[in-house]
């Protein structure tokens, strides 16, 4: 599905953010990319949809070599790559519905975009998506009137409106409280599975990563230093990724601490359906 070879990014000024990274995702799995701030996680994701231009390397999505495409063709590929952001990046002054429908921008004409005349099927899908993420009835609210968790749900809906072949998720929970973070992370993992697409999720929350991902990739200073199942993460691998610290505090696998409200029961069943609480404005 996704194959990355020899990916290197050097920013103007000489800072190397990624150093010959290679990654292959052959099934619809949730891959958590963990690493400290500045490890190159954001650059890594943005090189895949070329919001950041890679310096070197090859990226294949379902057989298409992405890094070789011209601007027009890149836009066509990008419409099938959903992206979710740390700061949600909703267009604040537009309504929830307009934001969700913006996921279809790559597929409609400029006039449809100007007058917001999206095809009926798109509107229908948008309403379904909003219902799916628990935001029914919020179609006409302005994005800047929502809470953080609600905004991220809109962001998720926007990405899925693209009927993506891959989800690129950049620190989806860093701006959220621990409980909302869990709900959002679980929602993203669930939607990726439902749609049968791979999801690359950047996070520095090891707890959430081990709980919701099927695979963990560790980035440290632009190098991939870990790539394995969540259960194989231990103190020494965490040290390799994040540096020296007392990892004992996190528990053996880093499972049971961060991102989990203390009174919630522990469960190994990461696939359980998450019921979304009723949302208040």
């Amino acid at each position: 599905m996704l194959r990355i070879e020899d990916l290197t990014k050097t920013y103007p000024g000489g800072r190397t953010a990624l150093n010959q990274c290679a990654l292959s995702v052959e099934q619809s799995q949730v891959v958590a990319v963990i690493g400290p701030s500045g490890a190159g996680k954001s650059t890594f994701l943005r090189c895949i949809n070329r919001l950041v231009e890679p310096t070197q390397g090859r990226i294949f999505l379902n057989g298409t070599e992405i890094n070789a495409l011209g601007a027009k063709k890149m836009c066509r590929i990008r419409r099938r790559m959903g992206m979710i952001f740390q700061e949600y990046n909703l267009v604040e002054r537009l309504t929830v519905m307009e934001n969700v429908l913006s996921g279809r921008l790559g597929f409609v004409s400029i006039f449809q975009a100007i007058f917001r005349r999206f095809p009926g099927a798109d509107v229908e899908l948008a309403l379904e998506m909003l219902a799916r993420v628990g935001l029914s009835g919020y179609e006409n609210s302005r994005a800047d009137a929502l809470s953080g968790g609600q905004r991220q749900r809109v962001g998720i809906s926007r990405a899925l409106m693209q009927r993506p072949q891959i989800l690129l998720v950049d620190e989806p929970t860093s701006s959220l409280d621990p409980k909302t973070a869990r709900t959002i992370m679980s929602l993203i993992a669930e939607l990726a599975r439902e749609n049968g697409i791979p999801a690359l999720i950047n996070t520095h929350d090891v707890g959430l990563a081990t709980e919701f991902a099927q695979r963990i990739v560790g980035l440290s200073e632009g190098d991939i230093v870990f790539d394995d199942f969540p259960k194989n993460i231990n103190a020494s691998s965490l040290t390799r990724i994040f540096g020296e610290a007392d990892w004992k505090q996190m528990g053996d696998s880093g499972h049971h601490t961060t991102g989990r409200a203390l009174d919630e029961p522990l469960t190994e069943d990461t696939g359980k359906t998450v019921s979304l609480e009723p949302i208040k404005a």
Binding site: N49, L51, K72, C75, R76, I77, R78, R79, R80, M81, M83, F85, E87, N89, L90, V91, E92, R93, L94, S102, G103, R104, L105, G106, I110, A113, I114, G155, R158, Q162, L168
Partner: peptide, 27 residues
């Protein structure tokens, strides 16, 4: 960030202009 998100949906320059920028500068 808002512009980046619209770009990430595969929108071209003109669509980014009317969907990502126009709402921000209209008032």
């Amino acid at each position: 960030g808002q512009v980046e998100a619209i770009r990430a949906t595969g929108a071209g320059w003109s669509k980014v202009l009317i969907y990502g920028i126009q709402p921000q500068v209209l008032p």
